[in-house]
């Protein structure tokens, strides 16, 4: 397995008027060719910040303060804005929540796809248009030649998300980051959109990072799950293993709060406490410690990864 994306000790901070927010703290993960890794966690855990930081899309207040991230051997943290602009779209692409807001509202959807392939693949206008129609067909939009000229407002949310996928994968990127791609879509549409992403990934060998708050969606659609909490990755394992044998107390809590088809409401447990204030200068090594019932005195020591199995690691001194 060769890692397409290799992230090591990657840290991000935001400077705000009320202090420095330690949004990501030395996170490390790899994504292999053709692999789908899900990044799950509650809101504010740093899932989206990870994606934005990797692609150089952080806003002006945020900066990468340490670590490395290489995509196909290219160091992203050292890349110039110009290099990043080339990599984005050509080698790494991202799709966003709320596709209607992410698309240009006053440009026909086909044109928006053609723009990307002209820019990154250097096709002529005619070839780019043909490619755009082909992409619309590939993502299952009926009557693609006619829909080429449609505007985003004329399409349903599910159709807009397909257009965004078409834009993202038109250049056959090595990495696709899907940030809550189906939040706000109906479950039926969600299933179809995720099918499209999965089949494209299978065909092209594209690595996918699926960012979601929905553990059940991650369970169905990813090969591996990394659980984030307050800017840390706390557990990372093959999906079936993580669901069957969660070891980090936070992962166990998250699973215990997720409604299932079988259990009743009485079987669900809320997670006590809340995320720590990431502006604190004295953040503990384990940011879950204050919410954790398995805390030990040893938890004050700097965090270290424990490798429980070849593909299962956990950042906890007292895993279950």
């Amino acid at each position: 397995m060769t890692a397409i994306l290799d992230v090591r000790d990657f840290s991000v901070e935001f400077r705000t008027r009320s202090g420095i927010v330690h949004a990501l703290d030395r996170i490390s993960f790899q994504v292999a060719r053709g692999e789908t890794m899900a990044l799950v966690g509650e809101s504010g855990s740093g899932k989206s910040v990870t994606a934005y930081a990797l692609l150089g899309l952080l806003d002006a207040a945020g900066r990468i303060t340490g670590g490395s991230a290489t995509l196909e051997g290219v160091e992203l943290t050292q890349a110039s804005p110009k290099e990043l602009a080339r990599i984005r779209g050509a080698r790494a692409a991202m799709i966003f929540q709320n596709p209607r807001a992410a698309l240009n509202p006053i440009r026909p959807i086909g044109r928006q796809i053609a723009d990307v392939v002209r820019r990154h693949a250097g096709l002529s206008r005619r070839d780019a248009d043909a490619r755009a129609v082909e992409m619309l067909r590939e993502v299952g939009i009926p009557d693609p030649a006619r829909r080429f000229a449609a505007y985003p407002f004329e399409l349903s949310g599910g159709m807009c998300q397909r257009v965004m996928i078409a834009i993202a994968v038109a250049t056959r990127p090595a990495l696709l980051i899907a940030d809550e791609p189906t939040t706000g879509l109906d479950v039926t549409t969600q299933a179809v959109v995720m099918d499209i992403i999965q089949s494209l990934a299978a065909e092209t060998g594209m690595a996918t990072i699926l960012i979601t708050h929905d553990l059940a969606l991650a369970a169905e659609r990813s090969g591996r799950i990394a659980v984030m909490h307050a800017g840390h990755i706390v557990e990372d394992a093959v999906t079936a293993e993580l669901l069957a044998h969660p070891r980090h107390p936070y992962t166990r809590r998250l699973l215990a709060a997720t409604p299932t088809a079988a259990g009743g409401l009485a079987d669900l447990r809320a997670i006590p406490g809340s995320l720590p204030d990431l502006r604190r200068t004295d953040l503990p090594p384990c940011r879950f410690a204050a919410r954790c019932e398995q805390r030990l005195p040893a938890c004050e020591a700097p965090m270290a990864w424990r490798h429980l199995a070849p593909a299962h690691r956990v950042a906890c001194w007292n895993p279950a």
Binding site: V187, T188, A191, A216, A219, E220, L243, T258, T260, A261
Partner: peptide, 10 residues
């Protein structure tokens, strides 16, 4: 509709 609901058991 029910078949489309993601489930933890995959």
């Amino acid at each position: 509709l029910i078949a489309a609901v993601p489930r933890l058991d995959g």
